[in-house]
Simulated scan of single mutants.
Amino acid sequence: MKNFEVIWTKNAEFDLESIIEYIKTDSIKIAKDIFFDIKNQCNQLSTFPTSRRIVPELQQIGILRYRELIFKRWRIIYKIEKEKVFILIVVDSSRDIEDILFQRLLKDDNK
């Protein structure tokens, strides 16, 4: 079984920190649990990262390189390059993801 290295981008780390800061105002324990749950879910991408779905909003326009992991109310968007999984975005699924996708991912693709 092939193992992939899971790497968090600065943007994704910032996303997770923001989520945890927000939850912490209600409960430090819940915030801590969610932090570790999300980290653990992402670490599981080290095996079979291609088993997760392609981001539907991007798939509709023919962009197939980004996948997502849905965990509770968060969407975790990542890409696979060689033997690495890059965590790119962690966002509450109630937010309009299309703006975030276009701001962060598509501008990087056009460099």
Rank of each mutant, 00 (worst) to 15 (best):
M1W: 00
M1R: 14
M1N: 07
K2N: 04
V6A: 06
V6K: 09
I7N: 09
K10H: 12
A12M: 00
L16Y: 03
L16A: 05
S18F: 10
E21G: 05
Y22T: 14
T25H: 00
D26N: 10
D26A: 11
S27K: 05
S27N: 07
I28S: 15
I28D: 15
K29V: 08
K29Q: 14
K32T: 10
K32W: 06
I34Q: 12
I34K: 07
F35Q: 13
F35Y: 14
F35P: 10
D37S: 08
C42L: 08
S46N: 00
S46A: 09
S51K: 03
S51E: 11
R53V: 08
R53L: 07
V55P: 01
E57R: 04
E57P: 08
E57K: 05
Q59A: 14
Q59G: 06
Q60H: 11
Q60R: 13
G62W: 01
I63C: 11
L64C: 01
R67P: 03
E68F: 02
L69Q: 03
L69V: 10
I70E: 09
K72D: 06
K79H: 02
I80H: 08
E81N: 00
V85E: 06
F86E: 04
F86Y: 15
F86H: 14
L88D: 15
I89M: 11
I89V: 07
V90F: 06
D92G: 10
I97A: 02
I100E: 02
Q103L: 14
Q103A: 15
R104T: 13
L105Q: 10
L106H: 12
K107P: 11
D109M: 09
